[in-house]
Design a binder for these strands. Structure first.
Lengths: 141, 141
DNA sequence: GTCTAATTAATAAGGATTTTCCAATTGTAT
DNA sequence: ATACAATTGGAAAATCCTTATTAATTAGAC
């Protein structure tokens, strides 16, 4: 799986650095859709000299070469997802976590939109909002 | 239609001011989902002394009383829509305009998500991205 | 018409993310 | 191994949307 980023980076003329691989690894290993700062914090132990600027520059490159997608679920910051497949997300309005919604069928919806709009569509983002199971418990008291 | 805002404002204990009515009128009369600054600019001719702060405070109140909904289509700023019905939006990646997608059936999609997630859902936002007809023409050269 | 609290206008301040800068370092082609 | 261009790191700075502040004005109740 590292192979793929390595090759893609080289192909596109980017250098393969430990920082870039580390950032991609984080994203590939999590389902939490971290923001730049979350990635930065998670790298602190193993890369104490990692710079936030490097995180930002790297996710931009990763997006450019198609290895990650960028989310904006109505927060102030962006989130990054190594799962580049089209899938809806749900954000907890209480704690802010963002989860995947898997195995949802929405091609009918997308096709209907495509057939009814005169836009040339290139993508879409589906965000659901609500309260996650954990916060339902703690709010229940 | 002004009647409705007027009454609602009074009911909720807000004063009815020309500024508030003017801002709502703009939103009710357009399908362009303007941001606070766009509203501000559009009001310049008729309300040269209108303050951006007033626009922000007013849209917040209008949202609170349920007369408008707030959109965030992955831009830096928020957009406001007097059409409070649930409907998808599409944003042009070229010129930035945001359009409605009307008469789209998505209740099946929503129901499927609701039945498969353990979140307690309270809402959703569907954003499509692409190139609008106008920009398709100008990019075609 | 008076009164009072809410609202406005204008500007300053805030807030937080993201970008820029540049010297030092590092990947990679030769 | 060498050389060069790309990249990193650290901090500062830009961005820019949004909120706070405050004196003056105004809506609405009586």
């Amino acid at each position: 799986m590292d192979k793929e980023v390595t090759n893609l980076l080289r192909e596109k003329g980017f250098k393969v650095t430990p920082q870039r691989l580390a950032i991609y690894k984080i994203l590939a290993a999590t389902k939490s859709h971290p923001s730049a700062e979350m990635i930065f914090n998670e790298l602190q132990p193993s890369y104490p000299t990692m710079s936030l600027a490097t995180v930002y520059k790297t996710v931009d490159i990763l997006r450019e070469i198609g290895m990650i997608q960028v989310l904006n679920a109505g927060e102030d910051s962006f989130r990054y997802d190594a799962d580049t497949s089209d899938h809806p997300h749900v954000r907890c309005l209480e704690c802010g976590r963002v989860d995947d919604l898997n195995n949802i069928e929405f091609s009918g919806f997308v096709n209907e939109v495509a057939s009814k709009t005169s836009y040339r569509l290139t993508g879409q983002q589906f965000y659901f909002y609500g309260i996650c199971p954990e916060c339902q418990k703690s709010t229940a008291n």
